[in-house]
């Protein structure tokens, strides 16, 4: 089972990476979501898996039974899921804004759209010696 879980996470991460490299931002965003899921699963796996018993202390008992799942990775993953959602929503808004701004969802086109009104190289602030060199040239 552990091996299978590790391989599953590998597949998930590979798919995420493939999407992150896409030229359109919506796909990259989906890759971001998948990567988060992969990370969450990896945390769970690193805390060791196998048991099906949840980390609940039985009524009347003082401590967790020996066979119960490790509670720590669960606590970490639980908040990570919610925060992951928050970040995905934020990223989505950025994609929307970028789209509204540049009329494209493709990162390279945005780069192109930005260049024409870039500050000309001569007016860019530079270190004094560089400026001096240019003046001398």
């Amino acid at each position: 089972m552990e091996t299978a879980l590790a391989l599953t996470i590998g597949v998930l991460v590979a798919a995420a990476a493939y999407l992150l490299l896409a030229r359109d931002l919506p796909r990259a965003l989906l890759g971001f979501v998948l990567l988060g899921t992969g990370a969450n699963l990896a945390i769970l796996a690193a805390g060791r898996v196998g048991t099906m018993a949840p980390p609940l202390v039985a009524s009347g008992a003082e401590a967790l039974a020996a066979g119960a799942a490790n509670p720590l990775p669960q606590a970490l993953v639980l908040t990570a899921i919610v925060i992951g959602f928050g970040l995905a929503a934020f990223a989505l808004v950025l994609v929307m804004r970028a789209h509204a701004e540049f009329g494209t969802a493709c990162a390279e086109d945005m780069d192109e759209a930005e260049r024409p009104d870039e500050v000309p190289a001569t007016a860019r602030p530079a270190l004094a010696p560089a400026a001096a060199r240019k003046e001398a040239a």
């Binding site: 959602f85 928050g86 929503a89 989505l92 808004v93 929307m96």
Partner: peptide, 10 residues
């Protein structure tokens, strides 16, 4: 608050 704010906004 967070989730509804985000979803409603989007």
């Amino acid at each position: 608050g967070t989730i509804t704010a985000m979803v409603f906004a989007l």
